[in-house]
Design a protein around this nucleic acid. Structure first.
Lengths: 340, 340
DNA sequence: CTGAAAGCGCTTACAG
DNA sequence: CTGAAAGCGCTTACAG
């Protein structure tokens, strides 16, 4: 592709490059007649200002970086989509970082910020990818940043998330209302705050209902389908089996349902299954999955808004944002029956 | 975050900025002793070279742009993931562009290339977002580019895809082998080459088997779940109903299956359903979906390799790459029975 | 309203 | 092996 610089436009329009620059980014400063000449030259040549020249001068990239552990995950994909849309609306481009929990990739993305390639960061992992010392205030050591879904416990960091504790509690309470007492949990990775909080919510709901926690009913998972399958296989081998299971993610719930079916059990008659997230496929599988719905679109938009506000130099005073979740009752849960 | 420039490192290490630059990008040119001093300063300060300075000078951004109509789509998400991984391996960062088929966003992303923010483009839509005249050779008018999945018919453009015609034919042939003769098609958007080719494959398979195409069996869709539902509702209202349906995407197949279930039909006894794509959830729904599998990982890797080759100045002579698809037989299809 | 000039942070021929 | 210098393409205070 031909490369045209501001100088080319300047010479075509018989003005200085300063005037070309003004016409494009501050047109009010330029007379109508001059503006017309410049725009004509821009039009004819298809000129787009080189971003590096501008960025080097302004020290702004116009990019935001999104760092996630796995973008194929339906939850993350839904959030990215909203971020992308909102970013585009505000004139930012989105750099995408899928870390796969690989430290070398986390470092690589962090460098994008230190090298100026992105102005700010939307972080969906629970670990700050910067070396932080507590000798200096945090905001001096990190770039403009919004942390979401996996909350970093630091009052200075902007966070956006649902209340995972309450969400989990609502899920388990619903099972209790249905008459279930033997309620298993297929958990997410306990290194993540989200899984930890959901576990606490599970325990709180049981405790509120004076149901003793059966340690055999608590199985570790990693939010992905496969561990849902494996966890359910373990539960089915138990002498005393649960009558309902709360899965910390829809993917694991889908895995659990596959395992149940594999072994010939009916859902929800033989076991009620409740998920977490409300991904698109939750409403499309059979039976349709009862779950806790996360407002993915809202999460994405809110993250981008908070980041943009920081980048514009208007950091809001409120740092923590809690978005509403919703219990969505579908067909994978039913009332407890003696026979089950 | 503190900003440290090459000059700071130079002064700390008592060398010129040229030497700092060499140490970082061409260490063989620097003596051991000098190198050590420079690296020490880099280490201590956490210096990362400002990319804009470098990019402005080298006229390279180190970014590649991925343009897709919808990143939440499981097919696209799977491809992105592979691209991201391969790009990272080769030292590129990925800029993500979700167009939502919005021309203003397509333009926005195209500008990223003209403005130098990305060195090359991975294009998953069937429309070149650049003004191209046929007075000049194409390669002078577009940036380094690889087109995938939705093929632009131009012999000069690098393309990566499965053979959609043959894939569709294989799907329909399988239904024919099972004894089906009344085979419906729920199609993708016919503006896309992929849907067009799959439609041709459908017609070819029928024709090869001397089955006349019933126009009532051919329903338009857009690859998404909802049109799968609607299309199946139309098919179920037909006086003479099909006994099998070929859906041009798994998402539409999932929609179609939901509609079938809604109306009390058994899958596959009452109707066989075959999809296309083999997204993760195809193997997780009930009954598990028979489908044509696309090698998403391979597609992503191949795209990125071809783009990198162009960017390195080694454009391969071969322009069109056809990757293998696979018929995956699961439980949503069965042999035709008179009764059905 | 417009232009000349400085400078953002790099890299790289050139000279030594 | 190393440094001085030019220049990539912009923007913006400054002067007029």
């Amino acid at each position: 592709m031909a490369k045209i610089s501001i100088k080319d436009i300047a010479s075509i329009a018989s003005v200085s490059s300063a005037t070309v620059s003004r016409t494009l980014s501050n047109p009010d400063l330029v007379s109508e007649e001059t503006k017309r000449r410049v725009l004509k030259a821009v039009e004819e040549t298809g000129y787009t200002p080189n971003r590096f020249g501008a960025s080097l001068r302004t020290q702004k990239s116009g990019n935001v970086l999104v760092v996630m552990p796995d973008i194929t995950n339906q939850v993350n994909a839904g959030i990215i989509k909203a971020i992308e849309k909102e970013a585009h609306k505000k004139g930012y481009s989105v750099l995408l970082g899928d870390t796969q929990n690989d430290p070398s990739r986390e470092k690589h993305y962090a460098d994008l910020l230190t090298s100026g390639q992105a102005d700010g960061m939307l972080l969906f992992t629970p670990k700050l990818p910067f070396n932080v010392s507590n000798k200096k205030p945090l905001y001096e050591q990190i770039p403009p940043l919004v942390n979401s879904c996996e909350m970093i416990a630091h009052e200075e960091i902007y966070t956006v998330s649902i209340n995972n504790f309450e969400g989990a509690k609502a899920a388990v309470n619903y099972l209790i209302e249905l008459g279930h007492k033997k309620i298993a949990a297929i958990m997410g990775p306990l290194e993540t705050p989200s899984a930890l909080n959901r576990f606490d919510g599970y325990k709180a709901a049981l405790s509120d209902a004076a149901i003793e926690l059966n340690p055999q009913f608590v199985i570790k998972g990693d939010y992905l389908v496969d561990t849902g399958i494996q966890a359910m296989e373990k539960l089915l081998k138990l002498k005393e089996r649960p009558t309902a299971v709360f899965c910390f993610s829809d993917d694991m719930a889908i895995g659990a349902m596959n395992a149940l079916r594999e072994y010939g059990y009916d859902i929800p008659q033989d076991m009620s299954v409740i998920g977490f997230d409300d991904i698109t496929y939750a409403a499309l599988i059979h039976p349709k999955l009862t779950t806790i719905s996360q407002p993915l679109e809202q999460i994405g938009v809110q993250c981008m808004k908070l980041l943009a506000a920081q980048l514009n130099g208007n950091p809001p005073a409120q740092k923590a944002y809690e978005l509403p979740f919703k219990l969505v009752v579908r067909q994978s849960t039913c009332a407890f029956k003696e026979s089950s």
